[in-house]
Amino acid sequence: MTDSTVTINEITKSYGTTTIIAPTSVTVEEGEFVCLLGPSGCGKSTILSMVAGLSFPSTGSVSAGDEVITGPGADRGMVFQNHALLPWMTARGNIEFGLKSARPEYSSSERRTIATQWLEKVNLSHAAERRPARLSGGMQQRVGLARAFAIDPSILLLDEPFGALDALTRRQLQLQLLQVWEASRRTVVMVTHDVEEAILLADRVLVMAPSPDSTVIADIRIDIPRPRMEDEQGEHAGRKAELRQQLLDLLQH
């Protein structure tokens, strides 16, 4: 696997005379799970899009390993809040299509094998031949996760992937994401506006100020050992409460 360090070097983003993102520098180390947390419109998704190679900074640069990002690449997999599945393809077909696009060197039988393996990992073997219209919102997002992991990216980018789901489905998918991530230790950058989600998932939380002139105003390490359950009376409940209040204070001020 190639070096999966993400380096954001003095980037800005402007539209006309309005600076959405002021000079911002961040490094996400190889194998880290980092959440970008901030209010709506602060530029979180814009930064993620830059790492994906779907948009570009007005000044500065974004790199994956030693390479400046100039467009999308198979080293980066993206999961959107809207699952972005092709409606005319089955769950398996969507994963195979992603593989065909990102890994053209794979044969059709290899693509089918990999798609089958990832459907098993996200507990969707029974729904392999269903089209998205016959899948629940949570199942559609699991297909999206499987598609992103299947291309074997060194960097996984998640843009509020669970934001549109009910609380129970969201928690189930958060835990499933952690299980898959802990087995492979990809570098993950995830956008969220949910403090609880950031504390549950991340090694570090980067808090952004509101736009215009948004930037990262705090880099908070989540020093609670995994697994981090909801038990408010557990051994680390006090530290979790401190982190929650610290993040909320930063968001409010």
Results as ranks from 00 to 15, higher is better:
6 V>T: 08
7 T>S: 12
8 I>T: 04
23 P>E: 07
27 T>V: 15
28 V>G: 05
28 V>C: 09
30 E>R: 12
41 G>I: 11
45 S>I: 09
50 M>V: 06
56 F>S: 05
56 F>H: 04
56 F>C: 00
60 G>L: 13
61 S>K: 11
61 S>P: 00
62 V>C: 02
63 S>T: 09
69 I>W: 05
78 M>P: 00
80 F>D: 00
87 P>F: 09
91 A>L: 07
99 L>G: 01
101 S>N: 12
105 E>G: 09
106 Y>S: 04
112 R>V: 03
112 R>I: 02
118 W>F: 11
125 S>C: 05
127 A>W: 00
129 E>A: 03
142 R>A: 01
144 G>I: 10
153 P>T: 06
160 E>K: 09
163 G>W: 13
165 L>W: 10
165 L>F: 11
168 L>C: 00
168 L>T: 06
173 L>Q: 03
178 L>P: 03
179 Q>H: 14
180 V>G: 00
180 V>I: 15
190 M>E: 06
192 T>N: 10
192 T>W: 10
192 T>Y: 11
193 H>F: 06
194 D>L: 12
196 E>P: 00
200 L>V: 15
201 L>E: 06
204 R>W: 13
210 P>K: 14
210 P>C: 06
212 P>K: 04
215 T>L: 07
215 T>G: 00
219 D>I: 13
220 I>S: 04
222 I>P: 02
225 P>T: 11
226 R>L: 12
229 M>C: 01
233 Q>K: 10
235 E>A: 10
238 G>D: 07
250 L>M: 13
252 Q>F: 11
